[in-house]
């Protein structure tokens, strides 16, 4: 499965970024399940619980041989996935960060550009 920034599932919520459906569509068509990170406007009080639950899943799926990947968005704070908080939580558990791909605006501009960047990543 792939952990993704909220932006990739809900691009219409991000007025300064392209309203691009291509990452969602590529992940969907590749047969991956999604663990969506919460939106940037998530109340701080809720964030610890969300990040901890995502770390639980990375650890649990990893322990049982599942492929777990992460896709962030370069132009968003914390890549849209609270990367610092997630790294800190996983480090405390001795668990490695999932293989990560951070995308730029040009990567999500078209179906072809998205496919080009993700085709080798979502194997």
């Amino acid at each position: 499965m792939v952990i993704i920034a909220d932006y990739f599932l809900n691009p219409q919520q991000y007025k300064k970024l392209p309203n691009s459906p291509y990452v969602y569509e590529f992940v969907r068509d590749s047969g991956y399940g999604i663990i969506k990170m919460p939106p940037l406007a998530t109340p701080k009080v809720a964030l610890t619980g969300w990040v901890s639950s995502v770390a639980d899943q990375i650890q649990e799926y990893g322990n049982h041989g599942f492929t777990v990947l992460l896709i962030g968005m370069n132009s968003l704070p914390g890549k849209g996935v609270w990367v610092s908080e997630l790294k800190r939580e996983l480090l405390a558990r001795g668990v490695e960060m999932p293989a990560t791909m951070n995308l730029s605006v040009s990567d999500v501009a078209s179906r072809d550009s998205t496919k080009k960047i993700l085709v080798g990543f979502l194997r």
């Binding site: 992940v27 663990i35 799926y61």
Partner: peptide, 16 residues
Amino acid sequence: VNQNAKVAEFARLPGI
């Protein structure tokens, strides 16, 4: 959104 989370034998699709 993530059929991997299903209990054994209850996933009906590969991912989403």
